[in-house]
Computed example of a mutant assay.
Amino acid sequence: MNQRKINSRRSKLNRLARNHCANYKSGGACDLQRCGLCTVEIKTDSIHGNICPYFMRNVLPAEPALMREYLECLPADHPLRNKSNRAGKCNRCGQRFERRSNRQQYCAGCAVENEKENSRRRNRDFRDRQRKRMTI
C-alpha cells in the first residue's frame, strides 16, 4: 500500500475520532484505551488505526466505506476483522453463533431440531394427501 493512501486513511480516521468520538480528548487522548491514546499503532502495513472499542462499535459504522477500507487493512487473523459479518443470532434459541454462510439462520443444535420438525411436517402432509386420494 502506498504512503499516500495510508496517510489519507489515517487522517480520515483521526478526523472521525476528533469530531464524533465521545472519549476523544485534545491531542488524541482517549479515556478507554489502556495506553491513553485514541489512535495506536497496530500490526499492519504501518497504518495507524483506532482500535478503541467505543470508536469501533459506535463511531466507525457511521462511515461504511471507511470502515470497509479500515478492516481490509487488518491482518486476516485479527479479531476485529473476523467479527465483521460472521456473527449471527439463532432465530430459534437467540444465542450468538458463527455463521458458515450468509443464509444460515440457526445454530448447529437448533438446525438439527428444525430439520426434524420440517421432516415430520412434510411426511405428515404427504400421508394426509395419500389418504385423501385413497378415499376418493
Score class of each variant (00 low, 15 high):
Cys73Leu: 12
Tyr70Lys: 00
Gln105Thr: 12
Leu32Tyr: 07
Cys73Tyr: 07
Pro79Leu: 03
Asn7Leu: 04
Cys52Thr: 01
Tyr70Ala: 01
Asn50Ser: 09
Glu113Leu: 08
Leu16Ile: 03
Gly27Asp: 14
Cys35Thr: 15
Leu32Cys: 08
Arg4His: 03
Gly94Pro: 13
Asn23His: 15
Gly88Lys: 08
Leu60Arg: 08
Ile47Tyr: 06
Asp77Tyr: 02
Arg103Val: 14
Arg127Lys: 05
Phe55Lys: 01
Leu60Glu: 06
His48Ser: 06
Asn82Val: 02
Asn91Cys: 08
Arg15Ser: 13
Arg129Gly: 13
Asn14Val: 07
Ala111Asp: 13
Glu72Asp: 04
Ala87Lys: 15
Leu80Tyr: 11
Ile51Asp: 03
Asn50Pro: 02
Arg120Trp: 08
Cys35Met: 09
Arg81Ser: 02
Phe55Tyr: 12
Arg127Asp: 02
Cys107Ala: 14
Gln33Leu: 09
Arg124Trp: 06
Asp31Val: 08
Ile42Thr: 15
Arg133Gln: 12
Leu74Asp: 05
Gly94Asn: 15
Thr44Gly: 13
Asn85Pro: 00
Gly94Tyr: 05
Asn7Glu: 12
Gln130Tyr: 06
Glu72Val: 00
Tyr106Gln: 10
Leu37Arg: 14
Pro75Leu: 09
Gly109Arg: 10
Asp45Cys: 02
Gly36Tyr: 08
Cys110Asp: 14
Tyr24Ile: 07
Phe97Ser: 11
Asn14Ser: 14
Arg15Leu: 12
Arg99Phe: 09
Arg127Gln: 07
Ala17Asp: 06
Val59Cys: 04
Lys132Ile: 09
Val40Trp: 03
Gln95Cys: 15
Leu60Met: 11
Cys52Tyr: 02
Cys52Trp: 00
Lys116Met: 09
Phe126Ala: 10
Asn114Ile: 10
Cys21Val: 07
Arg68Cys: 02
Ala62Leu: 11
Phe97Gly: 10
Arg100Ala: 09
Arg127His: 04
Arg9Ser: 02
Leu74Ala: 06
Gly28Gln: 09
Cys90Phe: 05
Pro61Gly: 06
Glu115Thr: 13
Cys93Asp: 05
Arg100Asn: 08
Thr135Asn: 14
Arg96Ser: 13
Val112Ala: 04
Arg121Gly: 03
